[in-house]
Design a protein around this nucleic acid. Sequence first.
DNA 1: ATAGGGTTAG
Length: 786
Amino acid sequence: MQPNQELIRTIANRYAANLTLCFPLRRTSLQLARAIHANFITFGFQPRAHILNRLIDVYCKSSELRYARHLFDEIPEPDKIARTTMVSGYCDSGDISLARSVFEETPLSMRDTIMYNAMITGFAHSHDGCSAVNMFREMRREGFRPDNFTFASVLAGLAHVVEEEKECVQFHAAAIKSGAGSITSVMNALVSLYSKCDLLNSARRVFDEITEKDERSWTSMMTGYVKKGFFDSGLELLEHMDEGMKLVAYNALISGYVHRGLHQEALEMVRRMVSNGIELDAFTYPSVIRACATSGLLQVGKQVHAYALRRGDFSFHLDNSLVSLYYKCNKFVEARAIFDQMPAKDLVSWNALLSGYVSSGHIGEAKMLFKEMEEKNILTWMIMISGLADNGFGEEGLRLFSCMRKEGFEPCDFAFSGVIKSCAVLGAYCNGQQFHAQLVKIGFDSSLSAANALITMYAKCGVVEEARRVFITMPCQDSVSWNALIAALGQHGHGAEAVGVYEEMLKEGIKPDRITFLTVLTACSHAGLVDKGREYFDSMETVYCIPPGADHYSRLIDLLCRSGRFSEAESVIKSLPFEPTAQIWEALLSGCRVYGNMELGIIAAEKLFELIPEHDGTYMLLSNMYAATGKWEEAARVRKLMRDRGVKKELACSWIEVETQVHKFLVDDTSHPEAEAVYNYLKELGKEMRRFGYVPDTNFVLHDVESDGHKQDMLITHSEKIAVAFGLMKLPPGRAIRVFKNLRTCGDCHNFFVYLSRVVQRDIVLRDRKRFHHFRNGECSCGNFW
DNA sequence: ATAGGGTTAG
């Protein structure tokens, strides 16, 4: 039987009309729309235009843009409502270019103010203020009258680009002239606009004139004050508010405090709002949790998490910040669980997880995740590049940076600081210089993060003067800059100057932090300023309330051992407020090696065998010590122990940069295309050095080799010698040779370079795992502490 | 069919 067509049509249309009523219940309305749509198809009806438009709208609002577009395309002549619906649908989904194409396909005669408004809003939401303003100008040129909606949107767009007071005033005047000047939504946008331009007095004037202030009015004014750090004005405003509106004000204050790093104040504000009977909401959580994450307050963070769960609140922002909280507090399992249990994830969620992996050293997982990510933004790249550098993967960092550019991402100052860190890891001086030049060109060189990275990069490339120059030419320095400079000077043997810079930093009123003390102690140690170092160490707790960590103690041990004050070092270890860690025993062991203190060295080594039996360095150090004192059997015993335990020696590797290209060499490496030429050259150099008095020190050969002649051959193929020889072949005369090694350099190579620097009259800078060696005219900056 | 503010990842 044929159904009664007229009846079905009527019912279908009535259902369709109901769509409007169902609207807030998105899922229901989407299901309903689908059912109605299916009915129309099944019975072959052509729905009426306004019903079709409703369907398109529901699909758009449910993020089913493809269905919406499909329906839209089937309409032979879409009216302006259908077009506007499509335009704003695309705008909401962030696809401004598709919105624009629908708009541009619309003949001028069919456009109206509403359609222009939709476009302007779209541009404003995508932070493209210029296009928003252009669209506004176009609509006026074409004779359309801007209304309240137009001004509210265009002013919001303007806030992203405007710099001058004049422009704000112009638009303000235009709004007043067209009668929109006293509309709350327009005035809210004006308050926000003036605030962003640092014109807080103008913002306040507009704010005071709003007769019917709503939540947005208060938020705009509060945010204006707080973003500029005027907390007093914000707090005063809080006093004069209706109780019902205070939540948004607290939220603004809290986020303002967090942004300035004032976590205590932020948490205090949370306590205050709770004690006034105001409950936290979805906008409060992320700021509070961030405050907890950056100050390591896991317990408070957990409480907030529990609070949100109790209230059944959910948002991307909340979960994303929780992922970050748990990672920062080293709760990897919890962090991952939050991520996995998220019903939906956005780009920020992925970035949060990526950053968690990277900062906890899970670089393998990070790389996999990065590959897996379909959508990336500049921050994704930045996290990965800087993470690779932090984990020692300099080459990959450099490679990824150029990938990023190929994919059309313009690096920001933070991305530059990531790639510059990669150069620092690699010692890629020429590459680093090029990035520096690019920074200058685009005017980012005064950015704190970029400049701080440059200081470290130049230092790690062994060019202290450049590091110093970057520091001096910065418009302003923060504690990171000071730390970087002190480290730079300390690493290169300018210990006294480093200490001077530290004193200057204190005079400037910059508070030293944990890192500052690490760098200062290192500097003292290199310069032999033992008593000064002790004094600084003691001041940490007594003056600056920073309890020294294991890393600080290990610097102190190093400092004492280097001047042979072993009994003092021993008593420090005995009085530690915690169990001595591996790095403390390591500091003691390497100190003992320098002085040949076998007795204490063996104790340290035994402890290390217990704590980190898989670490190859201990075996090497101890067997080196035995070998150096001619106890070959003992040396062999240690290496047998190492073999028995299955500990693999990390492969020694050196590298050198020639014309932005990094060349890598391993021990006895013949894989380099020019290996043969380098080996021959190195042999010649060896002979020549011997004529000048260099004697190969076979104590550093740890293989059991019978003849001395054979042993000498083995010494000559150490990777750092190959790299230096390669540099001598390739680099123009007079240019310093900068070579890097992943392990510590051996005493024989050290001695060889001392001779070499005098005979060939070249500066040689060698950076090994532990420190820098500047060889010049037969001397090394580190004395005998190789 | 269109509007205004505030939150998360470095």
